[in-house]
Nucleic acid binder design. Sequence first.
DNA 1: CGGAATCATCAGAAGAACTGACGACTACTG
DNA 2: CAGTAGTCGTCAGTTCTTCTGATGATTCCG
Lengths: 298, 298
Amino acid sequence: MLDLRRLVLLRELAARGTLAAVAEALSYSPSAVSQQLSLLEKEAGVPLLRRSGRGVRLTPQAEVLVAAAGELLDTLERAEAELAASATEVRGRVRVAVFQSAALALMPAALREMGRRHPQVRVEMVQREPESALHETWAREFDLVVAEHYPAHAAPWLMGLDRRDLTTDAIRLALPPRDEAPTAVEDLDGARALPWVMEPRGTASRHFAEQTCRAAGFEPEVRYETADLQAQIRLVESGNAVALLPDLVWTGRPTTARLVDLPAHPRRTVFTAQRVAGLRSPAVSAFRDTLETVAAAV
Amino acid sequence: MLDLRRLVLLRELAARGTLAAVAEALSYSPSAVSQQLSLLEKEAGVPLLRRSGRGVRLTPQAEVLVAAAGELLDTLERAEAELAASATEVRGRVRVAVFQSAALALMPAALREMGRRHPQVRVEMVQREPESALHETWAREFDLVVAEHYPAHAAPWLMGLDRRDLTTDAIRLALPPRDEAPTAVEDLDGARALPWVMEPRGTASRHFAEQTCRAAGFEPEVRYETADLQAQIRLVESGNAVALLPDLVWTGRPTTARLVDLPAHPRRTVFTAQRVAGLRSPAVSAFRDTLETVAAAV
DNA sequence: CGGAATCATCAGAAGAACTGACGACTACTG
DNA sequence: CAGTAGTCGTCAGTTCTTCTGATGATTCCG
């Protein structure tokens, strides 16, 4: 009978490409991974790996096993969830990936409320960019992800994930306070010549910001680039840049920046997602519900 | 993550009832089973076993895991079958359970033919009564079973098994040779007062034989009872008893017994069965095909 | 109230898996 | 076209898990 732990290694290899990356991801030594996969190959009786360059490639037969490994993990996860659901008290561990502004605005209250409702649930939080967070949740590194969705940007790859919207918030133009601003800027068009701060290339937020500027008829000069929205705020408040920021970043802190509505009144959607196989897990559901309560209150 | 090997132990426990039986069945020591199940309980985080008298009972939560274990094994088996199917050459191991007369009449030729067609397949044969053979095949102790089906006897429990008929053979009254027989018996009615040899109580064959006699208007005196049809033959040939025997028992040996058709011309069906999850296994399929070829030739 | 059956626990033995070092090979880089 | 870095396979030794066998507690049965 094929060993499940080895199948998981193979599945991870299919996802990551090299033995070294698998070892890194699952905290083994590369040698252990190599040995275990050799054993799997012997168990299976057919070649699974082919050396190709300095890496390895999976044979079609290995792909069959990868698919099976996915099914097996799903079944296991479903069983664990049912098990947990049958326990009267909600308990367990929930690993959550959250992007920065949600981490700041939502998580403190959510964690406090969760501690009150379900003290036996241990919530672990890791900050991640939405794109990688979704991927890692799919790959079972997290049980729940809080991610965002910008208008006119296709929702990134949600195969096998169950998505539920948490809240939406308006995206507005953040301008320096009047006493810091040299010129009198009052709207998007007035900001066309100013230096911008945006998130790095490749993020949904950056794409949205650039598109908005182009729709207004200019190409923004992106002088500053950071994924840290708090840093963006400081740049705006100190008069060094303008930015497009969702409202959620302002919760819980006073600001001197001036916020101006955009013509199209765009809104960002904040949502949670988890693997469908884990849907019946009461601990994850409980935290998801708590998040929704907190988000509704903001 | 729950350990699959431990889930299998739990599943076996659900099927067999006591730790000792599980240990016996899977060739572990009872202590190993106890320890592994304790670990599983710790992994699961919920109680799985309850001491009850001197044995143990499964909690409802354990039943959930048992169901999951079944699913997992099915998935694994399907994957292995697909894997084997993708290999160009047919190879592997096939464990077959066969009842006595098929073992004598069919298997020698089938094994020879199989060695010719697929030398890389290792066929292991165990002789078993049809009832237990079917059950053990369901329980994954065999990959293929050759069993029989008597008329008017419900096909025993084939849940999850794929059945294919191999052949049928006439069931006839076997009478002693004339020189051994004191009285001139020529048909079923004439045998009403003679001593009978039948299979043990609880077998389909016994049930059929008794019903046949009763339909003819008498209760047979079963003086001899044995599951060994070759022994029954000897008792008939030596003039000690009469019997109802399927034709297959005569293949490959000359007989002095006289065979008389029964009024209803009943036939016994010989069939093969395997778990549906293993249907794509080429080694099992190959042997099944070989058996069908051989059976057709008899 | 023995005697047999069953499971839990423990210490030690057996076995499986992992680590770290080495060597072979391949791609990239200047 | 060498030098360097990245990747995998293998091997010996260690670590960790799992199994065995002995012992004790509990229950059922006669």
